[in-house]
Design a protein around this nucleic acid. Structure first.
Lengths: 230, 230
DNA sequence: ATTGGAATTTAACCTTGCCTAAACTAGAAT
DNA sequence: ATTCTAGTTTAGGCAAGGTTAAATTCCAAT
């Protein structure tokens, strides 16, 4: 019998889909062990669930080789992502949550809110296209902006850029980023960089300069905005 | 081994505690079948869960005779009730939910929100003592106002009262109540009533009169406010 | 071509919550 | 006092999701 992907997926299934979507988006593929790692469960548990998800038509599975979401699976994943990002936005804008504390809460709420509530929140926020971390919010029917940002580490000395996206996983890191006054939309010039994956120095609006370690800079998604420093 | 009632009870357990608390409050006792009925599950399922809850120290069970929450059980139940009522209040006041649509949503959210989020909502609402249906909101440490309201049907002709509480279960009923302009705080006089559980007629502020069926009137909790009509 | 190790899957089992069918009280009605 | 019955509990199952241990399979390195 064919499972009709009706309304309610279990919390667990939603988590799988979310994680698989992210793995596909980030690294192109979703291996069993990567899924297990991301969900903090044992690999055999993943094998079991993957089988069920494949039977439900949410993904395709080539044995020993990994997994790929079907249309239906992606659609579901994007629904969840939309919820997550709207919830994060709402908590930050309307309930004074900090940028860096919000992830956990959203993680639990995204499985419990109705479409109606999401729409209310979306409306209260003015139907934003991006969340406060700069990540695009999927539309209700599962469209998402395809992004072509580059990591800050791809910018050459002398070039200008705008910070676009900072991620939302690591709250330590977010706290630090916030403390530097970095947030999506901020413009900067790269004024110096050391070779061999060393730190780079950027100048922000107002002339303040900050030194950013390579690792961190590499996680900051930016848009090139000026060919050259003026 | 003794289960340490730590942080996270399952959704299912929370629902049991909530229902048992309500049954005890309403009818004094909580029978297996009443619990089953309220949760829309089969009686044997209740027996099973009751055993586990008793082992966890959340309630006491006398075989064939029903169940009684322990201190710990009541405490948990009140935590959930607090969540529920704050969420309902928040959705109505801040997100334009209707009085009568809010119950379902709160029912799901109450199991997913953190204490921190509840506190934010509570703060945004100005730390209300009652929810929009007039029900008292338990404090964070599990105190709840003991109410001594009387059903509208207990008021004699000629006496005055204030509506205090309208319940939150039946959304049809709530819609109707709202359409009559009845809400907690509204003052009225009883101007007539028919015998044998017939309808009563009340006069609202402004002089408008409404006829209320016995059943409905009996579900409206009121406070006596004047000995006699003036 | 073979082999060794890492990753994956299978097998066997556990817990939570639910179910139905059958066995058992408790208490009302005779 | 006995019986009948409604309500409760026990027994036995099932599905979802997880676990560990053992068997596979792929691939990369000899």
């Amino acid at each position: 019998m064919k499972a009709s992907v009706g309304k309610g997926l279990s919390r667990s299934i939603e988590d799988y889909l979310k994680v698989i979507y992210k793995l596909e988006a980030d690294s192109g593929s979703a291996q069993t062990s990567a899924i297990a790692e991301a969900l903090a469960i044992a690999p055999p548990s993943v094998s079991g669930m993957v089988k069920r998800l494949a039977e439900a038509g949410l993904l395709e599975h080539s044995r020993y080789r990994g997994v790929r979401l079907t249309e239906a699976g992606q659609h579901q994943a994007l629904r969840i992502l939309r919820r997550h990002r709207i919830i994060e936005s709402y908590l930050i804008e309307q309930l004074e949550y900090d940028w860096h504390n919000v992830h956990q809460e959203a993680e639990r709420l995204e499985h419990a809110v109705s479409d109606a509530l999401i729409d209310r929140m979306d409306q209260a926020l003015g139907r934003p296209s991006h969340d406060p971390h700069g990540a695009p919010i999927p539309t209700p029917d599962g469209e998402i902006e395809t992004i072509h940002y580059v990591p800050m580490t791809d910018l050459d000395v002398g070039s200008a850029g705008q910070l676009r996206m900072v991620g939302d996983k690591d709250s330590e890191r977010l706290r630090f980023i916030a403390s530097l006054g970095l947030r999506p939309g901020v413009a900067f010039d790269v004024v110096a960089r050391q070779p061999f994956h060393g730190p780079l120095t950027i100048r922000l609006e107002g002339g303040r300069e900050e030194v950013i370690g390579y690792e961190l800079a590499n996680s900051l998604q930016c848009e090139r905005s000026g060919g050259d420093a003026k």
